[in-house]
Amino acid sequence: MSNTSPWNDLIGTPDQKHEEGIVVSDSHAEATHQPGLAHHFESYEQQKESSFLGMWLFLVQEVMFFGGIFCCYVIYRSLYGEAFAAASRELNVFIGALNTTVLLFSSFTMVVAVNAAKQGNRKWIVYGLLLTILFGGIFLGVKYFEYSAKWEHNLVPGPNFEWHGDDVGRPVEIFYCLYFGMTGMHALHMVVGIGIMLWMLRPAWRGKWTPENHNFVEGFGLYWHFVDIVWIFLFPFLYLIGLAT
């Protein structure tokens, strides 16, 4: 099964259940014979559950982190809706939508990598990761050009900020503070993610992740999807709010 393409598996083949929960004895010496099972866990099952619970808690933490800046956004937008809409219209919806698509594709290729890990197909783990890195890189590249365009148009907050659109007051600048703060924080998460994926390539190729133990790949997949979901919120909040008015 390990040589079949993971693409079939995405649609869903029935036999995905692997042998898990192999109970080992208490002895530390024996436990070390289980490949990939840390000494302090009793079984793969326990190790897997722990690592996923840990990852989900980490994501909860991330939600609270982004929650703080979203909270600022909600408050300022409710105060300065008109200025926010005007400022938002300066952003390029097409580029934003393009980036959204790119990021959604990267999530798809991440799923490919995770599924390959489930099957122990190390070749496709690497391909999946490489494609994800590629799409993530495209996203960041597009972001770079977007940022530099803002810089040229003096839309970066600070002493050089200039606004030539409708006269909607200084809160326009707050929108751009939030724009750079939110997308910057999001981009930072992507950079970290790409860094981790680059690190993952080598162990993936060497077959570190087996069907019994691929928690790291799956956990990282959750992280990548989370970063994707943050963008799903950022795109309408930043790019689309000007369209309605």
Binding site: C72, L79, L178
Partner: peptide, 27 residues
């Protein structure tokens, strides 16, 4: 994490002059 983002916003306001809490901009 909420403290973390708050501190980040403060640091960005101080270092990069992003006015998240700046009354001059309406913050």
């Amino acid at each position: 994490p909420v403290l973390a983002i708050t501190i980040v916003l403060l640091a960005m306001e101080r270092v990069f002059k992003l006015g998240f809490f700046d009354p001059a901009l309406g913050g």
